[in-house]
Design a protein around this nucleic acid. Structure first.
Length: 572
RNA sequence: CGGGGUGUAGCGCAGUCCGGUAGCGCACCUGGUUUGGGACCAGGGUGUCGUAGGUUCGAAUCCUAUCACCCCGACCA
């Protein structure tokens, strides 16, 4: 491909609204342009990368025995009403009506669509196991799209749905996807960390996310170097100390605490650490008030809380509700409420004694509080987030914390959709049974961004060979007609050898060409200039290294082929 | 949704306080000289100053409303 016939609008300066590296580089290298918030268009160069990634995804999915479909993006409301998600998906799902007033959703995911498709097509156990997938656009009305294609309203996802006769079958499907995902990400040249994850609104049991460690990641991961435990903070567990706190047991007493409301205020007032307090927060769980009680130095994990309560939604209660529940102004809540309210305690509360907590009365706190004596733990659960330094739930070693970008997510769905949408097949005895499902997603655009996050330097992108838009970037530095034809000849040699080459044939200065080559980041750079015209030497350089190798015309193609092969081999 | 910020040429920005006929750099077009790490000379302006009202002899600038975008938070497969 000739640069002058292609369209690579590189930018010298960083666009002002791009804050993360991958976003900046995608814009500057001419891969994408913003259409509006959370919507991006892919220019030819960017689309080539997207295609390379989807090619890899497709190959690995086919190898795992999955079958490719293409589903409609416009999904009728009936489908969502069957599963109950027309309500449950909330505002994230974009809903539209046609001219007849029929309601549709722009698909944010395709469980319903695939379940309905399989229901109408498959009726025998002989057709299972089935793993159906597609590579298609998803629409999600994100509250806050950000970081370029990392979180956008419209994005490309590879989504797969497995249907098995029993749990053993699901386990096989799940493991085969797990393997396929590892292959896909490693072939894209990115290192991923598989972590245990929450199953979220999809429902189901086992779940793993594939994370790319990155400072700009939106997820927090807890990792144990000692035993290999890895989990998303939403789910990560930690071992609590069993030892009772030191000090003589105290009696319960009321302390005047005028205007002392927050944990920080209390720590100053009582001159002690935040861990001495019991933090009592009122939530609305599906509109019903619930009090959650955790140690003062801990954050409540709303995902865990939601799961422990069996609720669909939990949100902080407004002040009016808090005051009603506690019979006191906000800031003086405690588990010893005057009126009964459902209260859930974190697991670490059971050993509490000599603690300080709100007295459910204005300007008063209790001190010397002891669990079991002063209040009953009716329900306890793990409802606090693990943080760096906590004890690993498996081995007790200190957990480490990192940020990650979620590029893939696999989980066992169970019977949620087959039952709600009544998908059955006949087993060998002629009896109708519900298949069990798994579902598996990869964010394709996000994977592209993650590749760039992991492969860049101060000059630009440095593509892994497997996903690079072109394998070779040919820079010609020619003045005379003769020199230009000599470069053209090299370009012809590369093209004829079947090598993907972008040939910078612009009448620009060498500096401009080299700078653009580094910015766009093809893995191999070939320079044909004065050392070729004088000594017959073609210069070959890897983007990720600084060394330049000079080869003669005869050995040239063989050398480049060898490099491509080596670079390919480094990755897959 | 709460807090903060920004909208002026394709990109990056100045001009706004203090109203007086739209600017700079890069990119782009024409001609010429150049060519090994973002060249130079000469010429060229491609704009509804986000939008709509208002004040004024006169508005990018002041007032009102509104829209969009970005960041932090809340939220979120």
């Amino acid at each position: 491909m000739r640069f002058t016939r292609y369209l690579v609008p590189t930018l010298r300066e960083d666009p002002s609204d791009a804050v993360v590296m991958s976003h900046r580089l995608m814009l500057r290298a001419g891969l994408i342009r913003k259409e509006s918030a959370g919507m991006y268009l892919y220019l030819p160069l960017g689309f080539r990368v997207l295609r390379k990634i989807t090619d890899i995804v497709r190959e690995e999915m086919e190898r795992a025995g999955a079958l490719e479909f293409l589903m409609p993006e416009l999904t009728s409301a009936d489908l969502w009403k069957e599963s109950g998600r027309w309500e449950a998906m909330g505002k994230e799902m974009i809903r539209i009506k046609d001219r007849n007033g029929l309601e549709y959703a722009l698909a944010p995911t395709h469980e319903e669509a695939f379940t309905a498709a399989v229901r109408s097509i498959v009726s025998s156990y002989r057709d299972l196991p089935l793993n159906a997938y597609q590579i298609n656009t998803k629409f999600r009305d994100e509250i806050r799209p950000r970081y370029g294609v990392m979180r956008s309203k419209e994005f490309i996802m590879k989504d797969a749905y497995s249907f098995d006769m029993d749990e053993a079958g699901l386990e096989r499907s799940y493991q085969s996807m797990r393997k396929a995902y590892r292959n896909i990400f490693s072939r894209c040249g990115i290192e991923t960390i598989p972590v245990e994850a929450d199953t979220g609104a999809m429902g189901g049991s086992a779940s793993e996310e594939f994370m790319v460690a990155s400072e700009v990641g939106e997820e927090v991961l807890l990792l144990c170097a000692a035993c290999g435990y890895k989990a998303n903070q939403e789910r990560a567990q930690y071992r609590r100390s069993e030892a009772a706190p030191a000090g003589e047991p105290e009696d319960l007493r009321v302390v005047d605490t005028p205007n002392v409301r927050t944990i920080d205020d209390l720590a100053v007032f009582f001159n002690c650490g935040a861990d001495r307090f019991l933090k009592s927060i009122v939530y609305l769980a599906d509109s019903t008030p619930v009090m959650a009680v955790v140690p003062g130095d801990r954050e409540i994990n709303e995902v865990k809380l939601k799961n422990a309560l069996g609720a669909l939604e939990v949100e902080l209660a407004p002040d009016a509700i808090v005051e009603e529940v506690t019979s006191a102004p906000v800031g003086f809540a405690g588990p010893m409420t005057k009126k009964p309210v459902r209260t859930i305690f974190d697991l670490s509360i059971r050993t509490t004694r000599n603690a300080i907590t709100g007295a459910n009365e204005k300007d008063k706190h209790y001190a010397g509080v002891k669990a079991g004596r002063d209040f009953i733990i009716a329900q306890e659960a793990d409802i606090t987030s693990a943080v760096k330094g906590d004890a690993c739930p498996q081995c007790g070693a200190a957990l480490d914390e990192r940020k990650g970008i979620e590029v893939g997510h696999i989980f066992k769905l169970g019977y949620k959709y087959t039952k709600s949408m009544n998908l059955t097949v006949l087993d060998e005895n002629g009896k109708a049974v519900y298949p069990i499902m798994g579902c598996y997603g990869i964010g394709v655009n996000r994977t592209m961004a993650a590749v760039i996050e992991q492969h860049n330097d101060d000059k630009g992108i440095s593509w892994p060979m497997t996903v690079a838009p072109f394998q070779v970037h040919l820079v010609g530095i020619a003045k005379s007609e003769d020199e230009i034809s000599a470069v053209e000849e090299i370009y012809g040699m590369l093209s004829n050898a079947g090598i993907e080459v972008l040939y910078d044939d612009r009448k620009a200065s060498p500096g401009v060409k080299f700078a653009d080559a580094d910015l766009i980041g093809m893995p191999v750079r070939v320079t044909v200039g004065k050392s070729y015209f004088k000594d017959g030497e073609i210069e070959v350089k890897l983007r990720r290294e600084s060394e330049i190798v000079r080869v003669g015309k005869d050995a040239f193609i063989g050398h480049v082929r060898g490099l491509i092969e080596i670079e390919w081999g480094r990755i897959s």
